[in-house]
Design a protein around this nucleic acid. Structure first.
Lengths: 170, 170
DNA sequence: GATAATTGCTCTAGTCGCTAGAGGTTCAAG
DNA sequence: CTTGAACCTCTAGCGACTAGAGCAATTATC
């Protein structure tokens, strides 16, 4: 039996994330010691490793819930289970294809920069002008319906942008 | 001068999204008519198209704010501006590379399914067992949509579970 | 055994880029 | 003048966490 901190260290999942997984029902509520602290066994560690691996592969929490539920019925056919994995593969391939289109356009935009002034910069021009793009990018993301689900989006880190300019909006 | 609905139709950006861009300072507050409704001109349409294109290319709202601010100073050198685009290109390439690793593993997992029942399913086995993975992978957090992805350095990313080869299943 | 440092607990709120809905006002067509 | 669509503001919600407050329990050191 080990504490949540030890489970975090062994699994590579952060402590608050473990509690989050418990809250959303991926991880069973563990027993508690006399001081109301969670105590885990190796079964919990295995399940948490399973969850972590599936998350790393891009499965949603909802997917993982379904996978876990199916794993509790080993006598059933595994078609549905396999379908989840195949869907995830298809999603991954679609993401790759889309990102490769974006990469091509970004490459085009960046390679046109001549190091002059902002006023002449091809980056801004390219961003303002859609018509030079090789093809449609960003499948129905913002405008029309969304075939894509939209996972978490993270902002640029402060170290990433333009560290020389003032840019002090916050 | 046109209404927010007309601007939405022309730009391909949804009405609430336009208001959101105004709220976060990407789009200037437009004038209002006597009934307090927003009225836009073609300059607003152009800026909104710029924003939309940049978002489709994966630039964050924060990036776009910086791009817009720089475009207001056309006499300055465009190195910082170009750097934002280059960073975005690097981020995109990193995401592609990671997704390709995930694709390979998903392909491996899926191709092992023999159509039996859940109890023997290779998908679950593979998800529960990291040791067969070719290399380390991490969660593809931002993926579809117009997302940026922060390489958040959690313990999970550093922890190379998939490289160890001891105690594997076969 | 006392104390200090660490870890644990719950709860709330914040992240990002929107999206949905409530409840009300204004506009354009008939 | 009536209807209904489009507009307004405001709040809350999404996914998958992350951060912090304020306190309790455990562990390490003296």
């Amino acid at each position: 039996m080990f504490s949540i901190g030890q489970l975090a260290a062994r699994s590579g999942v952060k402590v608050p994330t473990i509690r989050y997984y418990e809250e959303v029902g991926l991880l069973a509520e563990p027993g508690r010691n006399a001081g109301n602290q969670r105590r885990y066994d190796t079964a919990a560690l295995e399940r948490l490793s399973f969850i972590r691996h599936a998350r790393e592969l891009g499965f949603s929490v909802e997917d993982i819930r379904a996978l876990i539920e199916m794993s509790a019925h080993p006598e059933q056919p595994c078609a549905a289970l396999d379908q989840i994995a195949r869907d995830q593969l298809a999603t991954t391939r679609a993401r790759i294809a889309r990102l490769q289109r974006l990469e091509a356009e970004l490459q085009r935009i960046v390679s046109n920069c001549d190091g002059g002034h902002v006023g002449d910069c091809s980056v801004l021009a390219a961003l303002g002008d859609h018509t030079q793009c090789a093809g449609p990018h960003a499948a129905p993301t913002g405008a029309t319906g969304s075939a894509d689900e939209r996972p978490q989006q993270n902002a640029a880190d402060e170290h990433r942008i333009c560290q020389q300019q003032s840019h002090n909006r916050q």
